[in-house]
């Protein structure tokens, strides 16, 4: 048993290494990550949720009424989620004190795992990371794949969606958010 466990771990580590080598090279290049969001036809009220962050503090979507909320569904194993994280942080840094917030909702993983992961990133995310351990909230939002992002307007309406990674630091995204902030 003592000999098997390290071997198994080595295999997993090799597998992960191979995967990391394999996947990033075949993701669309940074400049090919799009920046467009799709307007949702009939804007409905965004489904409310209450989820815990890494410190156990509860965040409810309702608490952010009056702000534009970018809701991002993600997981650590998802390469494009990792790729878009620095741009998401850059956007949050730029607009975070201007009636804008990012809520990054992790799928299925536990806080210890995610905390270790964020420590490996070049840019440490300062926006709230919330935990959706049974994917109940992602199902409420009909999320089929990761990452998927939504924009919720200050009135709490679900107004835009983006499926797949995005260059969140693109000026067009900032412009869209600023428009939503003043839209009646």
């Amino acid at each position: 048993m003592h000999r098997q466990r390290p071997r198994k771990l080595t295999r997993y580590a090799l597998g992960i290494l191979a995967g990391l080598l394999l996947w990033p090279g075949l993701l669309p290049a940074d400049d090919s990550l799009g920046h467009q969001f799709t307007a949702l036809q009939a804007a409905q009220m965004a489904a409310d949720f209450s989820l815990q962050d890494m410190d156990g503090e509860v965040h409810a979507l309702e608490d952010y009424r009056g702000k534009v909320v970018l809701v991002n569904f993600w997981a650590t194993w998802c390469p494009p989620c990792r790729k878009e994280m620095p741009a998401l942080e850059a956007l949050y840094k730029k607009l975070g004190d201007k009636d804008f917030v990012v809520l990054a909702i992790n799928q299925w993983e536990d806080p210890d795992h995610v905390f270790a992961y964020t420590g490996e990133l070049n840019v440490f995310p300062t926006f709230p990371i919330l935990f959706d351990p049974d994917s109940a909230v992602s199902q409420l939002y009909h999320v089929k794949g990761l990452p998927t992002s939504f924009l919720v307007d200050p009135q709490g309406r679900l107004v835009y969606r983006a499926v797949g990674g995005r260059a969140f630091d693109h000026p067009a995204v900032e412009k869209l958010i600023r428009e939503l902030q003043v839209r009646p």
């Binding site: 799709t38 499926v163 990674g165």
Partner: peptide, 16 residues
């Protein structure tokens, strides 16, 4: 998670 979603509609710039 992990598996390719069964079906999707991709709008502009969408991918999966």
């Amino acid at each position: 998670w992990s598996m390719l979603p069964d079906e999707q509609t991709f709008e502009v710039d969408d991918w999966g």
